[in-house]
């Protein structure tokens, strides 16, 4: 099976900081990959390179046979790749339903009625159908993040990227977001997740990747990585988070 995401030897500099030092990664369709690692290891940067929110200085990325080169291709990739942010980034001037409808209307050219139906279905799916007319500011963090997931799903993405989706949440709200993500994983969505939720990682990930200092240190199935880490740095990191 051909990989749906093909990353080859990516380098990224922030000024003089060498944030990514030659990362290569293939993700198969339907695969759930969880990236872990200490802060500053480049895991979020790598994730943001996949839909080109971050430009990279060297290397190449091909998503679903579309190379990330021209502006047109980048937009085409973005419509197929949903992204969920740590800070939710809902549009505060729009209601929950309008948040989910906006890109459908503009990019997918769906009718108001069609977009409305999709929005309602997705709100049922993430468990907050009663919040359709609310504004983001009236929701809890967990609810906001679930709306953000629904907003990304409304574009019918082939791939979902999650950039520390639960890091900004109060502890009691983390599970409701993870549950939505688990369901997505079970449905066969291709997912790349940057997260420190080891429980989610064990339950959903096909592969766990440990990054440090801009390179992939080790990758394996979560059980293997957690119980029999090969690399010293993996052991050091896991001893702190497990």
């Amino acid at each position: 099976m051909a990989p749906i995401i093909h990353i080859e030897n990516i380098h990224k500099y922030f000024g003089t900081v060498h944030a990514l030092r030659g990362v290569s990664l293939d993700v198969d369709p339907g695969e759930v990959v969880v990236i872990i690692g200490p802060s500053g290891s480049g895991k979020s940067t790598l994730l943001r390179c996949i839909n080109r929110l971050e430009e990279y200085d060297e290397g190449s990325i091909v998503v679903d046979n579309i190379p990330l080169d021209t502006a047109e291709n980048i937009n085409a990739v973005r419509t197929e790749v949903g992204m969920v942010f740590q800070s939710f980034n809902l549009f505060p001037h729009l209601s929950v339903k309008e948040n989910i409808m906006l890109a459908q209307r503009i990019i997918r050219k769906r009718s108001r009625q069609e977009a409305d139906e999709v929005a309602r279905e997705l709100l049922v799916k993430v468990g907050i159908p009663e919040k359709a007319e609310s504004f983001p500011s009236q929701l809890s963090g967990g609810q906001q993040q679930r709306v953000a997931i629904a907003r990304a799903l409304a574009m019918n993405p082939k791939i979902m990227l999650f950039d520390e989706p639960t890091s900004a949440l109060d502890p009691e709200m983390i599970q409701e977001v993870l549950d939505v993500m688990l369901n997505l994983a079970r449905e066969g969505m291709t997912m790349v997740v940057v997260s420190h939720e080891m429980g989610f990682c064990r339950a959903a990930a096909h592969r766990t990747i440990l990054m440090d200092e801009g390179i992939i240190i080790e990758e394996a199935a979560p059980d293997v990585l957690f119980t029999r880490p090969q690399h010293e740095r993996t052991k050091a990191f896991l001893s702190k988070v497990l």
């Binding site: 973005r78 992204m83 990019i107």
Partner: peptide
């Protein structure tokens, strides 16, 4: 906030669509 533009772009909107529908109304 910068995240607003990023969210709009990540949904596939181009620069002007993001400005028109997300940034400028705010």
């Amino acid at each position: 906030p910068k995240g607003q533009m990023e969210a709009a772009r990540s949904l596939g909107m181009n620069y002007f669509q993001s400005m028109r529908y997300v940034i400028l109304p705010q």
